[in-house]
Amino acid sequence: MYAVDTPPQKTAEPARPEPRRVNRVRRRSQRDARTAWLLSLPTLLILAALLAYPLYRMIVLSFQNMRLRELITGLTPPWVGLDQYTKALTDGVFWGVVARTAAFTVVSVTISVLLGLGIALLMRRVHSKVRLFMMIAMMFVWALPALVAAQAFRWLTDSDFGVLNYLIDKIPGVDFANHSWFVNPWEGWAVITTLVVWAGIPFLAISLSAGLTQVPKELLEAATVDGASAWQSLRNITLPILKPLLTIVTTLSVIWNFGLFTQNWALRDGHPEPVYQTLATFSYTQAFGQSRYSYGSAISVITVLLMLGVMAFYIRQMFKIGEVD
């Protein structure tokens, strides 16, 4: 992407200059390399100490059995081999959590991306003042801290004084006074999904609407003149051009939503019932609620492994698209 970034060695090669110059170039590039590594060193050391090492410790921990006793006494926890993993993989509760997290991810990402795309397309059709209003509304939602948004939704859906029950109750023949949204898990998950979609739309719609400006309008007009329907134009012109961007934002949404914690944690008062547990909250509760640090670690390791494919895909896309030169 950046032409100026071509490695200096390459420019020296085809000209085959006299040996002394080659030496000088090599010496300079060696000195450059040393400077570059020196500059990167603090970052690499910090990442090694506070990211790579904990990652290694997490894996080690998952083969041990660390409980509160070991935490207090500082004794080395007993080694238990694959016990934590066997325990997780043979536990119906754990599989329930995995299935729930996966199902939530699929549903919430599908809805978010489709809605985000719809809003982005809608923004192309509306009056410029309406578009400005939509932009401002989305910016406010995007700016809101996740926990504040979750608290707002907890208040909206409060069983006693929540405005949602009040409004629904107004529909003739419907009794929603004191309705509790989290008794029925389907309803509870509908609230959580609405919150996540609502909070996720601004990023998706604004990114995608930026992407839509890349679609040449001459192409769309020509298609319309030739009798293509709106749907045909969308499918055959807009979506193919938007595809790389759609792939990136979808991948990011999958990574974010799979790690759901804040929303179900806050909406369930910091004590999610089993039916509201996701992999992130489950691992956390096992470790810090029940002092099963090793079991929690094993679940985290499994979570990371499950995500590895998606992450690798994201990084490959970034390299392919050329964001990384």
């Binding site: 990211l51 990652l55 660390m66 790690g259 914690f261 470790a287």
Partner: peptide
Amino acid sequence: ILIVLAVQLVPFLALLIPLFLM
């Protein structure tokens, strides 16, 4: 570059247990 990109995707909460112990 690869490390910097990849590290952003690590679910940080997963590391909270070892970080807490450290």
